[in-house]
Design a protein around this nucleic acid. Structure first.
Ligand code: DCP
Ligand code: MG
Length: 683
DNA sequence: TCACGATACAAA
DNA sequence: GTTTGTATC
């Protein structure tokens, strides 16, 4: 692939709905169409009464925070994040629609559903990556190339041309004139983007016609520029950013305007280099960038400052996790267990509803439950955040809430005067939850509940769970990697990870009391899991030693006893900041492995769960696969590797890694000669 | 190179 | 304020 291909070979679109929640609410409340409107979220605190999506929710005197602002209100200076009172000062006739409320918290179901409808249309011609509830990226290179091949050098005019802009060609009729340029002056990349713009104009028209939503879009050769472009003309417009307009566009652009540079990393880079614009960044020699941040980040910045970005559009329309949370600020902070349990119950029941609906729609189910919180200790104790994960076998609210309460109790136990300021629960690690009758899962004892009746879900191919692991899923929604969680059978999943990574306040969990409790509960739950007992791991409690002793007699999997499960449970043995691997912990891990810890997903179906007669009756290759899988499950864990730590440098959280994976070229190759990059065109 | 859990950061 | 994705160690 040539350099031209890398920099100008793709056509990427970023599509962003205009004032999305407001548009959704205008559909619900047509009387507000054309009027200044915003969507507010107020914290109902103790009030559990609901506000349904289909009822009237106009509360013009609300003092809640604005989370979406319509364009009429923006024109009056109303901004996101304002409170109702402040917003009315700027716009006295502002209409406010309250977000639906269920389980005593904001309920975003309506917006998720609308976002999904939009994505369904936008993904008709290409792969699509859901970037947020109202944004996506499309890689329309192939569709654009088709049209380019058919256009005889003259890219087709987009529909709704008055909504179309070309960066650097400002003014009335400028876009049309650009399209009508003579054949000879078009660069190939420009034709590609022009054809892509015609595609995007049609997609936007379809969204408008079929759903009544307006959106804006950017069309460029990569994600970063497409995202930048989509924000250039709003609402209900689209903008093409060609390669040649990059210097003029980005030279004076503030660094924080670029995706991934809007936070601490961007701040640190600007401070370290004493710069503030992308043009200044492009003038910094690569060596100096490397001295200021890591080599990968330096290269990523170097290329980005020239408008180069190879990150691919991922094919993924579904969220990878489902989470819900709630904050309890100031005097509403939770200070007793009944209150905590009540809210965990509310969160868990919302989670259950959403997991259930997601399973019906998408034929998948989550394998990992994470519960977390932010809190403040009493006087003399520390606060901070804590989270713990465990296998999620049966997503039932009572179980999940009970699981979650264990974390809170442990955390609170040594913090007299504790107060919780936020709680959240997340379900993740999805895998397919087949509904058909023709899969191998018929032969297994039920784990996730009884199979659903066979129904088809358009666009989401399914594979029998047990056969899935070597095959990539069609659009990245299902886990492809080895295991959905490592605690299989589930252990005391609230146990600490490597103690040296934990804040001081968690260190008690290394102590004898926690160890004993963990050990007992690990056995307890291991036994329960093999019998499909309802517990999930977080339920392992510190109290019922009698129950534990019942199980202690010998939970065996593959002939390996799991009774010391708790001794290593939750420790991070793989690597880390010089974590010491002690022999006992390794032994414990191997025991867990014997219980199929670290097993690829397909191995979660251990022989214990398959009727031996049925196993014998299975096709030979399936039998082989199962046995191979179990063998791999017994691999010992890797030993810890010391990783020397350098001095702290600014670190990008994401993008440099993406760039690395995309295998871009080396410094100097493919980048324009340099310090005067932004002088090619006056900025 | 991977896997994993807990955490941090960035964004809508 | 309520989410979601992706990074590090
Ligand atoms: N901090 C934020 C930002 C956004 N949103 C929600 C409400 C928005 O309507 C939706 C989309 O976010 P955008 O940033 O795309 O903003 P809008 O779509 O509202 O406006 P724009 O027309 O600028 O895209 O996500 C939110 O809940 N909290
Ligand atoms: Mg938007």
């Amino acid at each position: 692939m040539s350099l031209e291909d890398l920099q100008a070979g793709r056509c990427i679109a970023h599509v962003d709905l205009d004032a999305f929640y407001v548009q959704v609410e205008l559909k619900q409340h047509p009387s507000l169409i054309g009027k200044p409107t915003a969507v507010v979220q107020y914290n109902p605190n103790g009030d559990l009464s609901t506000l349904r999506p289909d009822e009237e929710r106009i509360f013009n005197r609300s003092n809640g925070s604005l989370i979406a602002v319509g364009y009429e209100a923006r024109a009056k200076g109303v901004k996101r994040g304002m409170r109702g009172d402040e917003a009315r000062k700027a716009c006295p006739d502002l209409n406010l629609v309250q977000v639906p409320v269920a389980h005593g918290k904001a309920d975003l179901t309506l917006y998720r559903a609308c976002g999904k409808q939009v994505l369904g249309i936008l993904a008709r011609l290409s792969i699509a990556e859901r970037a947020s509830i109202d944004e996506c990226y499309l890689d329309i290179s192939e569709e654009a190339k088709k049209r380019m091949a058919a256009c005889a050098g003259h890219p087709p005019l987009p529909v709704n041309l008055e909504q179309v802009h070309v960066c650097g060609e400002e003014g009335e009729g400028a876009a049309e004139a650009w399209w009508h340029r003579p054949v000879g002056v078009w660069a190939p990349g420009q034709r590609l983007l022009a054809c892509g713009a015609a595609v995007v104009a049609e997609l936007r028209a379809a969204v408008s016609r079929e759903l009544g939503f307006s959106c804006s879009a950017g069309i460029a050769h990569n994600k970063i520029l497409a995202k930048l472009a989509s924000g250039m003309h709003k609402p209900s417009q689209q903008t093409v950013v060609t390669l040649d307009c990059v210097p003029g566009l980005m030279g004076a652009l503030p660094i924080p305007k670029l995706r991934q540079l809007g936070g601490k990393f961007g701040e640190e880079v600007m401070a370290a280099l004493g710069i503030s614009t992308v043009g200044e960044l492009a003038a910094v020699p690569l060596r100096r960038l490397e001295a200021v941040c890591g080599q990968d980040d330096a290269m990523w910045l170097h290329r980005l400052s020239r408008g180069i970005d190879d990150e691919e559009v991922k094919e993924r329309q579904l969220p990878k996790s489902i989470s819900c949370g709630k904050t309890f600020r100031g005097h509403t902070a939770l200070k007793d267990f009944p209150a905590v349990h009540k809210w965990l119950g509310e969160l868990a029941s919302e989670l259950e509803e959403r997991i259930s609906a997601d399973r019906e729609e998408n034929e998948r189910s989550p394998g990992l439950l994470t519960v977390g919180m932010w809190g403040e200790g009493g006087p003399g104790t520390s606060g901070g955040s804590v989270s713990r994960s465990c296998p999620l076998r049966r997503p039932e609210s009572a179980l999940m809430a009970a699981d979650a309460l264990k974390l809170i109790k442990r955390w609170a136990a040594e913090r007299p005067g504790w107060a919780i300021t936020s709680l959240y629960m997340t379900a993740s690690n999805f895998s397919s939850a087949p509904t058909g009758a023709s899969t191998i899962t018929r032969f297994l004892k039920p784990r996730l509940g009884s199979p659903l009746p066979a129904t088809s879900a358009p666009g989401q191919q399914q594979q029998p769970t047990i056969l899935r692991s070597p095959t990539p899923s069609s659009s990245g929604q299902l886990v492809q990697s080895a295991s959905r969680h490592s605690k299989e059978p589930p252990g005391p999943s609230m146990a600490p990870s490597a103690a040296e990574q934990q804040p001081e306040e968690l260190s008690m969990q290394q102590g004898q009391q926690a160890l004993t409790a963990d050990s007992a509960s690990g056995v307890l739950v291991a036994a329960a899991a093999l019998q499909q007992a309802p517990e999930s791991a977080l339920q392992a409690d510190v109290q019922p030693s009698s129950t534990a002793s019942v199980a202690a007699e010998g939970v065996v999997s593959d002939g390996v006893k799991c009774s010391n499960y708790g001794e290593s449970s939750g420790r991070n043995l793989g690597h880390g900041d010089g974590a010491q691997v002690d022999a006992a912990a390794v032994a414990g891990k191997q025991d867990q492995a014997g219980c199929s810890l670290d097993a690829p997903l397909l191995l979660q179906c251990t022989e214990e769960e398959i009727d031996p007669e049925v196993l014998a009756a299975l096709p030979a290759d399936i039998q082989r696969e199962l046995r191979l899988a179990q063998m791999m499950a017994r691999r010992p864990p890797p030993t810890a590797a010391e990783a020397p730590r350098g001095r702290p440098l600014p670190r990008a959280k994401q993008s440099a890694q993406s760039a690395k994976r995309a295998r871009h070229g080396r410094p100097g190759r493919g980048t324009a000669p340099i310090t005067d990059f932004y002088r090619r065109t006056p900025g």
